[in-house]
Amino acid sequence: MNEEKIRQYGDELYECFVARKTVPPLLEREPDITLDDAYRIQLRFIERRVQAGERIVGKKIGVTSKPVQDFLGVFQPDFGQLTSGMVYQEGDVIDLGSLIQPKAEAELAFVLKHDLKGPGVTAMDVIRATDYVVPCFEIVDSRINDWKIRIQDTVADNASCGVYVLGKTKGDPRKLDITLAGMVLEKNGEVHSTGVGAAVQGSPANAVAWLANTLGELGIPFKAGEVILSGSQSALVPVVDGDELVCTVGGLGSCRVKFSGRSAV
């Protein structure tokens, strides 16, 4: 795909993000689009957000569970960029008016204390470079009509990232079994779904190592202080005005989030 088209699609997704609109899947319009093209479109989309004043503060890993990989017909995760405009603190109310067709997922987030640069990074290196882990919610959103995404669509659309909320309880991954830690997601006081760290690439640390190596191939390091959302451990939860979600990671703590307003769709 030539540079002009990459720019055109990146700009289109950025404009959708700003206007809270959706477009038909890219794959419908460009049947030959490759995963590499999709990541270049994502870079353009993010470039526009940075030009508008945001900073890149971390990464998100998506498509980490086997059911989602099977659904999208891929055998590896994908990633997107976290920007300063996506950050909510625990206790904040998320304004659905800023989103299009949001769904929540519960994850474990890593915050690094050392730079980490692939290739050659193992899960052990990830634990060593980690300052702390926290329970978090990622509110995914899609600029593609009705979430009709294939892997190229979601990658171009910044891995369908919306906003995210980090919990306040920090855990040391040396004191917590991040692979077997249970994840309980409650919606409005009732258990909605449960999961476990192993649902993410066998262990959340494996997903982070995968991304360190994938970025390493492109010459990009993880920087100390960056936030890495390691991938969903829960089912996707649609959210509407008034909903309250709590996710609890066994042995760690909880993250609580409320929603108000109406999303675009």
Partner: peptide, 17 residues
């Protein structure tokens, strides 16, 4: 919040808390 993983022949087949 106890996490559980069931493996059959080395492959994860069920998970939950």
């Amino acid at each position: 919040t106890l996490g559980v993983v069931m493996e059959k022949n080395g492959e994860t087949v069920a998970m939950g808390a």
